[in-house]
Design a binder for these strands. Structure first.
Length: 440
RNA sequence: GGCCCUAUCGUCUAACGGUUAGGACAUGAGCUUUUCAAGCUCAGAAUCGGGGUUCGAUUCCCCGUAGGGUCACCA
């Protein structure tokens, strides 16, 4: 199964009637991995035969999304630019008696009085699905289905069959929702005299309620995830492992490793629930490997310089699963302490202790901080000078007032990290103000 | 409803018919601890049911059951 006789030609065929769905993105990924692994060709074909519902911005969203993921295509087509090809095949089908012009009584508005129907031979169609094995349909129930509104207006099944034929597509790797379309397309392909491609129907991506993932379940557009601050490597890795896995216990893979390992035969049969927690985990893993991106984001949000961003990096990395989370951290979140904090007198002392104690402890800290020159004002050194005193006077008694004086927040990173980020002068200034408050 | 597909922890999944049914995410507990986050350790958690085949079924077959997909002059 993983040793095709000929060089594979695969394709992804989205229609520009909506943004790139993550299910389509995953289908594209499987096609891409398969073609790269076997030195084949990957075609992007925009299925825009429905003039009513197509929009150019959706096509852009599709190409943007694929490019973002790192999926590139070898050939690009638009069905709307291929009417001549469909027309000539259609004519031939009619001449051969495989299709015919049919007079109709329109049942719906917009329906034609004349369409082109496929002459169904009412046979049983059996095909071998790489993932599912043998699948059989009785095509009798399909009747003489409509394949075109007119010579210049082909419908989906016709356009697909002709294109797959003309483009030499060897493997059709697509979502399971297409499985019932397959017999129709096989029928048309046979009438065309085309070789039958190998089919592989991959399981659907499901919502938590196990229904087909759709907009009502939240974000389904790939670019939404991009915009929320997921990294393409994380998304790619997660999507690849949804419904497929290489067998071992490793889960983190680069795209080239995925190409190396990919095997259609190991694709799962059942649908896979899209689990945002797992995606977040992947994203955290990749964010940790991309500190430069995080630094830039910090600089943008806090409008500070590179050295401050650098100092913020560790606490930020500990707290985010997406780039989008960074903003919250600095806007009212745990790292929002760059501006001068308001420290009410009653909040400064540790549990059940007096302002007097808090004030005295802060005085001592102040002296300890002053003993460090600016160059030596690092997390390690701050901790080294502070901890012995904190141990003797009581950790909470010393460290809570210190942390609160520096941040004015119930929740924040530890006081040593905060002091380091703020720097010696600012830290001393804040401690000084807190002492004043306590003495007032 | 017809047709088709599917079925291992809550989720993603591993296990050429022979394993104490493994891992990851999530969850819970403990450790650490000034708050928070992180980290570390541990724990709970699954083969849908019933029949076969077999010395032996998660694995193969059949029947149920459940879930999903699809039934356009959309793709």
């Amino acid at each position: 199964m993983s040793h095709p006789e000929k060089t594979p030609v695969v394709r992804i065929a989205p229609s520009p009637t909506g943004n790139l769905h993550i299910g389509t993105a995953r289908a594209a990924l499987f096609n891409f991995l398969y073609s790269k692994k076997h030195g084949g060709k990957f075609i992007l074909r925009i299925e825009d035969t429905d003039k009513e519902r197509n929009k150019p911005e959706y096509e852009k969203n599709i190409t943007d999304g694929l490019s973002w993921l790192g999926i590139s295509w070898d050939e690009f087509y638009r069905q709307s630019e291929r009417v001549e090809i469909y027309r000539s095949h259609l004519k031939k089908l009619i001449e051969n008696g495989k299709a015919y012009i049919s007079k109709e009584t329109p049942l719906k508005e917009g329906w034609r009085e004349e369409v082109i129907r496929f002459k169904n031979t009412n046979v049983k169609i059996k095909f071998d699905d790489v993932i599912r094995g043998e699948v059989e349909f009785d095509t009798t129930e399909l009747g003489d289905f409509v394949i075109a509104r007119s010579l210049d207006e082909p419908l989906y099944h016709l356009a697909v069959a002709i294109d797959d034929f003309e483009m030499g597509v060897t493997h059709v790797i697509r979502g399971e929702d297409h499985i019932s379309n397959t017999p129709r397309q096989i029928l048309i392909a046979e009438a065309l005299g085309a070789a039958r491609p190998i089919y592989a129907h991959i399981p659907l991506i499901l919502a938590p309620d196990r229904s087909k993932l759709s907009k009502r379940h939240g974000a389904v557009a790939l670019t939404e995830y991009r915009d929320r601050g997921y990294l393409p490597e994380a998304m790619l890795n997660y999507l690849a492992l949804l419904g497929w896995n290489p067998g071992g216990e490793e889960e983190l893979f680069t795209i080239s490793q995925l190409i190396e390992l990919f095997d259609l035969g190991r694709v799962q049969k059942g649908g896979a629930v899209f689990n945002i927690d797992k995606l977040n985990w992947f994203n955290r893993e990749y964010i940790k490997q991309s500190p430069e991106i995080v630094k830039k984001e910090i600089m943008k949000i806090t409008s500070t310089d590179i050295s401050t961003a650098e100092k913020f990096l560790p606490p930020v990395l500990e707290r985010i699963s997406t780039l989008g989370n960074i903003k919250n951290l600095f806007n009212g979140g745990e790292l929002d302490f760059l501006n001068e904090p308001k420290c009410p007198k009653e909040k400064l002392p540790w549990k059940g202790e007096t302002s007097n104690t808090a004030g005295k402890n802060l005085e001592k800290i102040k002296a300890l901080f002053e003993s460090l020159d600016e160059k030596r004002f690092t997390i390690e050194n701050i901790k080294a000078v502070t901890m012995p005193f904190a141990e003797s006077a009581g950790r909470g008694s010393v460290l809570w007032p210190l942390r609160y004086a520096l941040t004015g927040k119930e929740k924040s990173p530890d006081p040593f990290s905060v002091a380091y980020i703020l720097g010696k002068n600012e830290s001393l200034a804040r401690i000084g103000r807190a002492i004043k408050t306590l003495n007032a």
